[in-house]
């Protein structure tokens, strides 16, 4: 008799735990408007990344097309996987001295691990992490970017 009682208890107890589980899912099933999904392409306009979000390395330019990069190459040294190449050139300054300035700051997004070490290494805060998060391109060569805009100059007052 005790075995039978235990048997019934087992069956009913099992059913009770199943009903509890159904209660958890049922709570959400009957409130389908409480979803947590974001409709991604629609909310593209509103979607705001956090300020420290590491999307890509960018070089901010001011309105006069000037940047802060001196071409010192510290970011190139800090980069663990060679995603940054600095190509510098020599120019003659007004007082007749030779000076090396940046020609091209080449950035391979396809190789970048977004580790932020280059930004940390930069002494003049010339490069920062950008907020862009949509990096898909049709051609791999589009992932290689030149960060300094054509014709841009170094800002006044940035010391070598």
């Amino acid at each position: 008799m005790k075995a039978l009682f235990n048997y019934i208890k087992e069956v009913l107890g099992g059913f009770y735990t199943l009903l509890q589980g159904l209660g958890v899912t049922g709570k959400y099933l009957f409130t389908p408007w409480n979803y947590v999904t974001q409709s991604y392409p629609e909310n593209r306009e509103k979607l705001q990344m956090f300020e420290r979000f590491r999307g890509e390395v960018i070089m901010p330019h001011n309105e006069n097309n000037e940047h802060k990069c001196t071409g010192c190459g510290l970011c190139e040294l800090a980069c663990p996987n060679g995603s940054i190449e600095i190509i510098s050139k020599s120019i003659l300054t007004e007082d007749g001295k030779k000076k090396r300035i940046i020609d091209k700051h080449i950035y391979h997004l396809g190789m970048c691990t977004l580790c932020n070490l280059c930004v940390r290494a930069c002494p003049s805060d010339a490069i920062i992490m950008g907020q862009k998060y949509e990096h898909a391109v049709y051609n791999r060569s589009n992932l290689t970017k030149v960060l300094n805009k054509p014709g841009s100059k170094i800002m006044e007052g940035i010391k070598e």
Partner: peptide, 14 residues
Amino acid sequence: RKVCAAIQQRIGPN
């Protein structure tokens, strides 16, 4: 697909 989406707090096909 809609029922499981509702249970899982998703939208489902839309």
